[in-house]
């Protein structure tokens, strides 16, 4: 099969490794991690643009290296060829290999903030803690540009108000890293903040499966042409509904 993969750059190293191992010919396009921070309507519009730009004659399906991502994928529509995406709330499911493992770990680890190579080296806000996925942030904020824009006293207040009370970094090692640089960085950041550090072995299973084909209905959603993605508030996480294509 010839497949097109449109993926968040958070998975850069992992998707490249999976593509290398795939029995199919997979062309890849990475989109900025920053889409996560611009609000769902803009995020899905940007993704739709990328999907619509795919030449339907050349590919059998468009793979999405995404999850539900808030509601960032809601409304995304398959035109002439199907879309395929993992049934997942967010990228941590893909890093840990299953929703169940993610949920169990999340529920038993209060205040956890996850890190992977992509979280560290990708995106304009690489490595910084923000919760700007709330609403329209407009831009990423560093402490320095908060000071510049709002003055020292306000910046101090905002910096504290915008940082949620995480207590732990959990670094997920996916086995595609060159060495322990990302782990070391995360350990150092945890030490600086006085947070707990934990290293988790990631699992490439879902990422490999997305790129290798064989998308079973339990873990993947195949969106047929003329259908769009909807959020489902049960274990299926995402579903489809028919649309009238103009």
């Amino acid at each position: 099969m010839r497949l097109k993969l449109i993926s968040c750059e958070i998975f850069y190293r992992e998707m490249c490794a999976a593509v290398a191992r795939s029995p199919h010919r997979v062309d890849v396009e990475f989109l900025p991690k920053g889409l996560h921070d611009i609000g769902s309507p803009k995020m899905s519009a940007r993704l739709q643009e990328a999907v619509d730009a795919v030449d339907a004659q050349r590919y059998e399906a468009v793979l999405l290296g995404y999850a539900l991502c808030g509601t960032g994928l809601v409304g995304l529509t398959a035109r002439a060829i199907p879309l395929v995406l993992p049934r997942a709330h967010d990228c941590i499911t893909l890093f840990l290999g299953s929703n169940q493992r993610y949920l169990e770990y999340f529920q038993n680890t209060p205040g956890v903030y996850f890190k992977t190579s992509g979280w560290i080296e990708r995106g304009e806000t690489a490595g910084r803690l923000t919760q700007l996925s709330f609403g329209n942030s407009g831009e990423g904020f560093s402490y320095a540009n908060l000071v510049e824009k709002y003055g020292e006293e306000n910046a101090q207040y905002l910096w504290e108000a915008m940082a949620p009370s995480y207590r732990q970094f959990s670094y997920i090692e996916m086995g595609v890293e060159p060495d322990d640089r990302f782990e070391r960085q995360t350990r150092e950041q945890a030490a600086e903040r006085g947070w707990k550090f934990e290293k988790l072995q990631g699992d490439m299973r879902l990422i490999d499966k997305l790129v290798a084909g064989g998308w079973d209905d339990k873990e993947f959603l195949v969106v047929p042409p003329g259908h769009r993605i909807v959020a489902r508030y049960d274990e299926s996480i995402v579903g489809t509904e028919e649309v009238d294509i103009p």
Partner: peptide, 17 residues
């Protein structure tokens, strides 16, 4: 102002304070 994207989260937080 927030709704028409003139204000963002920081402006909201400062106004609320």
């Amino acid at each position: 102002r927030f709704e028409c994207e003139e204000y963002f989260v920081p402006e909201l937080l400062l106004a609320a304070r």
